[in-house]
Amino acid sequence: MPRKFIKKYLPDPHSIKKNRAVNMFGSLLHDANLWHLNRKSARGAFAVGLFNAFVPIPFQMWLSAVGAIVFKVNLPLSVALVWISNPLTMPPMFYGCYLVGEMILGDTGYEFAFEPSWDWLVQSLSTIGPTFIFGCFIVSSVSAIIGYFGINWLWRYSVAKAWRLRQEERANRTK
């Protein structure tokens, strides 16, 4: 079930290879492991994609593509999972990361009050920045671990369920 569901939404590898944005990876994209969709590649892609979704830098998709190439996991899936963090979800996600960092490191003594200005951003990097970055690292790591083991469990469960259904159908046909 997960394979059919995921494969339905993934783009064709040939169309991805023709894209100018990924041409910078050149012959690295010819590795067949980057395009196979099996339990091992899916669980690795979930880990890479979810980890990079909480990394507070631009170009998370490229970072996820590099991670997929390094770990030889499904490239389209790892890049697609980065879109969990999009312009609508980033503010609550990153505020949550800051709260996690503050909960673990303790109160920083600084009040969090957002201002859409360059001065506020520069000042915040020195005051609440370390807490925020630490929180992002913790949330990234935990979400990668949960994604890795969660998709592994879901994949194994759906395969076992399919086997049971086939055995029951076979038993019913022989009666």
Rank of each mutant, 00 (worst) to 15 (best):
W35I: 02
H36R: 15
H36G: 11
L37C: 05
L37Y: 03
N38L: 05
N38Q: 08
N38H: 06
R39I: 01
K40W: 12
K40H: 14
S41E: 04
A42G: 14
G44A: 09
G44S: 07
G44W: 02
A45N: 11
F46A: 02
A47R: 04
A47Q: 08
V48I: 12
V48M: 02
V48L: 02
G49P: 05
L50P: 05
F51L: 12
F54H: 03
F54N: 00
F54E: 00
V55P: 06
P56T: 10
I57Q: 10
P58D: 06
F59N: 11
F59W: 07
F59G: 06
Q60V: 01
Q60R: 00
M61G: 01
M61L: 06
M61I: 11
W62R: 09
W62M: 15
L63Q: 14
L63N: 14
S64R: 00
V66T: 12
V66Q: 08
G67L: 13
A68R: 03
I69N: 04
F71L: 05
F71I: 01
K72S: 11
K72G: 11
V73S: 03
V73T: 11
V73C: 10
P76I: 05
P76G: 07
L77Q: 08
L77D: 08
A80Q: 04
A80Y: 02
A80N: 02
V82C: 14
W83Q: 00
I84F: 06
S85P: 07
N86Y: 12
N86G: 13
N86I: 12
P87A: 07
L88Y: 09
L88I: 12
T89W: 00
T89M: 07
M90E: 11
F94Y: 15
F94H: 13
Y95V: 14
Y95K: 15
Y95I: 14
Y95H: 14
G96K: 15
C97M: 13
C97A: 15
Y98D: 00
Y98V: 00
Y98P: 00
Y98T: 01
Y98A: 02
Y98C: 01
L99P: 03
V100D: 14
V100I: 15
G101H: 11
E102T: 12
E102M: 06
I104H: 07
I104C: 11
L105Q: 10
G106Y: 07
T108K: 08
T108P: 15
T108L: 12
G109I: 01
G109C: 01
Y110K: 01
E111T: 05
E111H: 03
F112R: 08
A113F: 13
A113N: 15
F114Q: 13
F114W: 15
F114T: 07
F114N: 09
E115C: 01
E115R: 11
E115F: 08
E115M: 08
S117W: 09
W118C: 04
W118R: 10
W120E: 02
L121A: 09
L121T: 07
S124M: 09
S124D: 06
S124P: 06
S124W: 08
L125K: 01
S126G: 14
S126T: 10
T127Y: 05
T127L: 05
T127M: 04
I128D: 07
G129C: 02
G129S: 03
P130C: 01
F132M: 04
F132L: 07
F132I: 03
I133W: 02
I133T: 04
F134H: 11
C136D: 10
C136H: 09
F137K: 00
